[in-house]
Design a protein around this nucleic acid. Structure first.
Length: 268
DNA sequence: AGCTCATGGCGAG
DNA sequence: TCGCCCTGAGCTG
């Protein structure tokens, strides 16, 4: 269950393991059998991520993978074992293998179709050279809440439920503020914080957002591990005391997703 | 064994 | 806004 940092790691991992060499491609489960046959034995030329979309380039044909809510990659060294369960896509060479399960998308795209995917995605804080200006144009004109806008992949690509909750907490911004009520300075701060947090996420392979001064050790509290594997302020911490002010973290359903925030630290 | 939930997104209405 | 798709983990019984 991935946000953008996971996909960028997957692009790098695929490139390291398979890049520049022929790769065996199959679909043990069978649901991607025809596509797999078309690229089986070809050379992986490039691997790229845009938001939560992964693109693997096989000379004019692009394998497009989107993990959705449940998709998962598993990498291994050496020979691939007998597939267990539902493996949609398997890529393998003599060094190792990668198994993909449960993706929302696993398909071959033409360059034109790939370009269309990019066109409908907003700027990605993890893509080199991208700026948040295009996102700001949409946000500053929208009456939708900033919480919903941050999750909208047309506005901004790669941010999911964890990063949106955490960046709003870190900047003390209420998730219910309409986008058009944000100042340019506030947006610039959000973008800069996302760039920093998500690059940390790529490096660490998990989402950590708690500043050093608010860690349990610094606050004189018992150590704590969030069940999704990172240290965060509000994500999935509903009814637990805010790490900064002690007020119970609140939750609410917004556009069919859980939103988390601190009603005291995020009033403005 | 059978729920329920999850870091997502699409299309129908 | 709702229902639906994909899969697995973590409960409850």
């Amino acid at each position: 269950m991935p946000e953008g940092h996971v996909i960028h790691r997957l692009a790098r991992r695929n490139d390291e393991l398979f890049g520049g060499r022929p790769v065996r491609v199959s679909s043990p489960q069978g649901r991607f059998a025809e596509g797999a046959a078309l690229i089986d034995g070809r050379v992986l030329e490039e691997a790229e991520a845009h938001g939560k979309h992964l693109f693997l380039g096989f000379g004019g044909q692009w394998l497009h993978v989107h993990l959705g809510l449940y998709g998962k990659y598993e990498f291994g060294a050496g020979g691939a074992p007998e597939p267990v369960g539902q493996v949609r896509l398997r890529m393998a060479n003599d060094s190792g293998y990668a198994d993909l399960r449960g993706p929302t998308a696993c398909e071959l795209l033409t360059p034109g179709e790939k370009a269309a995917v990019h066109r409908r995605l907003g700027p990605d804080p993890l893509r080199p050279g991208e700026a948040g200006d295009e996102a700001w144009r949409r946000i500053s004109r929208s009456g939708t809440t900033v919480a919903a806008l941050l999750m909208d992949q047309k506005v901004l690509a790669g941010v999911g439920n964890v990063y949106r909750a955490e960046v709003l907490f870190r900047l003390g911004i209420s998730p219910h503020r309409p986008g058009r009520d944000l100042s340019r300075a506030e947006w610039d701060a959000i973008w800069a914080d996302l760039v920093a947090l998500m690059h940390d996420g790529v490096a660490a392979g998990r989402i950590d957002t708690v500043r050093p001064e608010h860690t349990p050790e610094a606050m004189g509290r018992p150590p704590r591990v969030d069940d999704h594997g990172g240290e965060v302020y509000v994500y999935r911490r509903h009814d637990q005391p805010c790490l900064v002010c002690g007020t119970p973290v609140r939750t609410e359903e917004l556009a069919a997703r859980n939103l988390f925030w601190c009603p005291r630290c995020q009033q403005s």
